[in-house]
Design a protein around this nucleic acid. Structure first.
Lengths: 118, 118
DNA sequence: GTACAATGCTATAATATTTGTAGCTTTGCT
DNA sequence: AGCAAAGCTACAAATATTATAGCATTGTAC
């Protein structure tokens, strides 16, 4: 599949709007997980493979290429690492952690009483 | 595939951490696009199909079910709409729009001079 | 300098997801 | 009754992902 970049048509949007390219890029398996994990520090290919418990090397490699082509990660002597842009993206993603834990997760328990009907 | 919910093991994480469930859920094709689009207001199944230019009805329906099961969207008389949680999630996603446009998109043009080497 | 382990992959076949297309069913006009 | 729109389902084809094996390179340790 084509690597989604701003300015080019992507899945679901011929307009080339950057946000659409970004959503396409991040909406691929493991893409956000890799960014999320690399915030902890650079990691090797095998290290990422262990972290993403069930990713195949094929997919990991594809995803790493895409993220590199899109300037979010780079290779360093210590392994793959976030670029400046990757860091910024992580910072945008980061609030989702707290929200998921403190707000979203709660929505599952009470709803059992409120909306039994499917 | 299983619908990723906080507390249950998901793709890439046996821990059941809410953020991992969320990243799994949103890392499926069109999931973020649907949330992004519904912020503009409720929309019908066919309306969403038109918006997501190349989504198949099968996938759209699957995704809608998942998002509903995860309390992010609901059905209303005007069509599918964001829930309170969906709105909150949109608000977390929203800053990515500006960042993609004003920061990320720029990273593609200058790099041509800086890093010619693959 | 040669074993050995670790890393970064590639190859290949099996499985899962997504698309593309057709069309059925229900609802609401007219 | 006829027609159009909405919300799907069915199913085959195309694409993405996994699982497993293994190769090539690099860096110690003898």
């Amino acid at each position: 599949m084509d690597i989604p970049k701003p300015g080019a048509p992507v899945r679901g949007s011929k307009s080339g709007q950057p946000i659409m390219a970004l959503l396409d890029l991040l909406g691929r398996s493991w893409a956000m997980g890799i960014v999320w994990h690399l915030y902890a520090g650079p990691n090797t290919f095998r290290g990422l493979q262990d972290y993403c418990e069930s990713i195949s090397p094929t997919t990991l490699n594809t995803r790493l290429k895409e993220l590199r082509d899109c300037n979010l990660i780079k290779r360093t002597l210590e392994g793959y690492a976030l670029t400046e842009y990757g860091q910024e993206l992580y910072e945008l993603l980061e609030p989702m952690g707290g929200w998921a834990r403190h707000r979203w997760a709660k929505s599952f328990t009470h709803n059992n009483e409120k909306k039994q009907a499917k």
